[in-house]
Design a protein around this nucleic acid. Sequence first.
DNA 1: ACAAATAGTTATAATCTGCAACTGTTGCGT
DNA 2: ACGCAACAGTTGCAGATTATAACTATTTGT
Lengths: 158, 158
Amino acid sequence: MDWHESSILSERARILVRHLGNLEKNDASCCGISLAQCHAIMEIGRKGKINPNDLADLLGVDKTTMSRTINNLVESDLAVRHLNGGDRRYVVIQLTKNGQRFFENTETDMKRYFQSVLERIPEDKRSQVLESLEIFKAAVKNCGCALYTGWKSTHPTQ
Amino acid sequence: MDWHESSILSERARILVRHLGNLEKNDASCCGISLAQCHAIMEIGRKGKINPNDLADLLGVDKTTMSRTINNLVESDLAVRHLNGGDRRYVVIQLTKNGQRFFENTETDMKRYFQSVLERIPEDKRSQVLESLEIFKAAVKNCGCALYTGWKSTHPTQ
DNA sequence: ACAAATAGTTATAATCTGCAACTGTTGCGT
DNA sequence: ACGCAACAGTTGCAGATTATAACTATTTGT
């Protein structure tokens, strides 16, 4: 059990997440759209069509929050709700032309950003970094355990 | 200019950030403390002592938000404010005994989590992943540009 | 000595969030 | 066919978080 390596991993992942997260937050607020709305648009755009419940799970928010976020998108003419003919409980969400444009522009922006990140990585290390991110991503996703397992039991609960 | 690689990079970083972010969010809410408060505790703990302004910059929030977050911590007996003798404009924040315990427990939890992530990475890839994360982190930090540079100009602004 | 700059706090208002309770729809067992 | 549980989705409410603007207090520079 290598305690030292996991400490390094923890540190690097933390800084990375915070840095990219802040970047997102700062830049999202400058275009009249909330971060939650932006994330929703990006996921709807990638999936093409999706129902609110799955979208809520994907983004890790409550379905009521999702419902309201979708309201905002619809009011801003960025997304539309359709009723699924087969099962009328289901609602299908899709992007409008406006939303589609937003989605594509933002995806291009993100690629451009990561392009410039890539340029800051030595050329002979790029494929290694790409592969490692995939490995790390898979390890994180497969790790069912919680981040702060000890909180409930070991933390002073005020 | 390799558009394909930056696309892959973007995708992997995005999923990683969202996954770890959600993990944080879900687990933070279960111990009577907000995510903002938790982040603040962790940074105060790592720095030992820090002033509100620097802490706000570090966490990417407004200083007024920081002030209130610190209020919460003080009320919960997790941190204390001290007046800096030298320049009485400055406030120094430190953890209380309670806060210190919280900090140490959480740091241990995080290490434990990343330990189990590490165990899911093939042994012969671990040092490569660790190195790559460092490279990637540095590249992200040094990249002064914004994530969504095009939003202001190219996005439909509502 | 006095204006500008700095660190920090409070007032206000807007936004985001989730739990509880609700409607409407479907599937299942009898 | 009926009733009931399960499910998708929405709204009422109440609490938490956030930033902008206006403020106090302290220091620095001229």
